[in-house]
Amino acid sequence: MTAKTENTVVIDAPMDLVWEMTNDIESWPQLFDEYAAAEILDRSPEGTIRFRLTMFPDEEGKVWSWVSLRRPDAATRTVRAHRVETGPFEFMDIAWDYQEVEGGVRMRWVQEFHVRPEMPFDDAAMAEHLNTNTKVQMARIKKLVEAAADRSGDPA
């Protein structure tokens, strides 16, 4: 069984700026409000990035952290990623796609996953959580990237 979420946002900024800011993993603790740290562990010659994300403590004080592999492709404006350390998931695959549209750049995130059966929540509950949180993070990213575009004076 596989669960899937899909969320999009249109960012009123040039494609290159949207691509650069959202693929600069080292800056994710400033771009996302949920990450305390982002550490690059390895970069392959083919462009795959292995990195660790660490979240701020949750309501119970638990700090979640995991390693992912991410492969950005600037030519197609796509990113494919998956968690290596899967935590509560049997698997978690993520696709980011960017497309120039009227009003800016449409950024789409698709997450496909399956929660481990021993977890106290199921795929549907995780999908609801991810959809809620993704909208918050995308709104934040939109605001920050658009502010950077305004400062740079680049037309969208």
Results as ranks from 00 to 15, higher is better:
residue 66 W to D: 00
residue 89 F to H: 11
residue 135 K to Y: 06
residue 79 V to C: 04
residue 140 R to W: 03
residue 21 M to L: 15
residue 100 E to H: 05
residue 131 N to F: 05
residue 76 T to W: 04
residue 26 E to R: 13
residue 71 R to T: 11
residue 5 T to P: 14
residue 23 N to D: 03
residue 90 E to Q: 11
residue 68 S to W: 01
residue 41 L to A: 00
residue 65 S to K: 06
residue 119 M to C: 12
residue 146 E to S: 10
residue 94 I to F: 09
residue 39 E to V: 06
residue 51 F to E: 09
residue 37 A to V: 01
residue 85 E to L: 07
residue 95 A to S: 15
residue 107 M to K: 10
residue 50 R to P: 15
residue 120 P to Y: 10
residue 107 M to A: 12
residue 43 R to V: 09
residue 78 T to E: 12
residue 41 L to D: 00
residue 119 M to Y: 07
residue 56 F to Q: 07
residue 127 A to K: 08
residue 139 A to F: 02
residue 124 A to L: 08
residue 56 F to G: 09
residue 143 K to Q: 14
residue 153 G to E: 02
residue 74 A to I: 14
residue 58 D to W: 00
residue 82 H to R: 14
residue 128 E to Q: 13
residue 118 E to M: 11
residue 19 W to G: 04
residue 38 A to M: 10
residue 106 R to A: 10
residue 20 E to W: 05
residue 54 T to Q: 08
residue 89 F to N: 09
residue 47 G to D: 08
residue 45 P to Q: 09
residue 81 A to I: 02
residue 85 E to Y: 04
residue 52 R to T: 00
residue 75 A to Y: 05
residue 26 E to M: 13
residue 128 E to K: 11
residue 132 T to Q: 04
residue 54 T to L: 04
residue 66 W to I: 01
residue 35 Y to H: 11
residue 20 E to K: 11
residue 105 V to P: 02
residue 155 P to V: 13
residue 152 S to A: 15
residue 85 E to I: 04
residue 7 N to S: 15
residue 61 G to R: 02
residue 75 A to T: 10
residue 94 I to S: 09
residue 9 V to I: 13
residue 149 A to K: 13
residue 58 D to S: 10
residue 51 F to T: 06
residue 120 P to T: 10
residue 90 E to A: 03
residue 147 A to G: 02
residue 57 P to W: 00
residue 68 S to A: 14
residue 41 L to W: 08
residue 36 A to K: 12
residue 67 V to S: 02
residue 82 H to F: 12
residue 81 A to G: 15
residue 43 R to P: 15
residue 42 D to V: 06
residue 153 G to P: 00
residue 3 A to W: 03
residue 91 F to P: 13
residue 98 Y to K: 02
residue 144 L to G: 06
residue 52 R to N: 03
residue 14 P to N: 03
residue 27 S to H: 14
residue 66 W to S: 02
residue 109 W to E: 14
residue 129 H to K: 05
residue 96 W to F: 14
residue 74 A to W: 02
residue 61 G to W: 00
residue 96 W to G: 14
residue 151 R to G: 08
residue 80 R to Y: 07
residue 4 K to L: 14
residue 11 I to G: 03
residue 13 A to Q: 07
residue 72 P to Y: 01
residue 73 D to W: 06
residue 110 V to W: 04
residue 88 P to L: 09
residue 36 A to E: 07
residue 48 T to K: 14
residue 36 A to N: 06
residue 139 A to N: 02
residue 83 R to I: 08
residue 89 F to E: 09
residue 88 P to S: 11
residue 151 R to I: 12
residue 123 D to A: 07
residue 95 A to C: 03
residue 138 M to N: 05
residue 68 S to Q: 04
residue 14 P to K: 11
residue 82 H to W: 13
residue 80 R to S: 13
residue 141 I to N: 04
residue 65 S to P: 01
residue 84 V to T: 15
residue 89 F to C: 02
residue 42 D to S: 13
residue 51 F to W: 15
residue 102 E to K: 15
residue 16 D to F: 10
residue 37 A to P: 01
residue 120 P to H: 02
residue 96 W to D: 10
residue 155 P to F: 06
residue 40 I to Q: 01
residue 70 R to D: 08
residue 11 I to P: 00
residue 92 M to L: 08
residue 5 T to E: 13
residue 138 M to R: 06
residue 2 T to V: 12
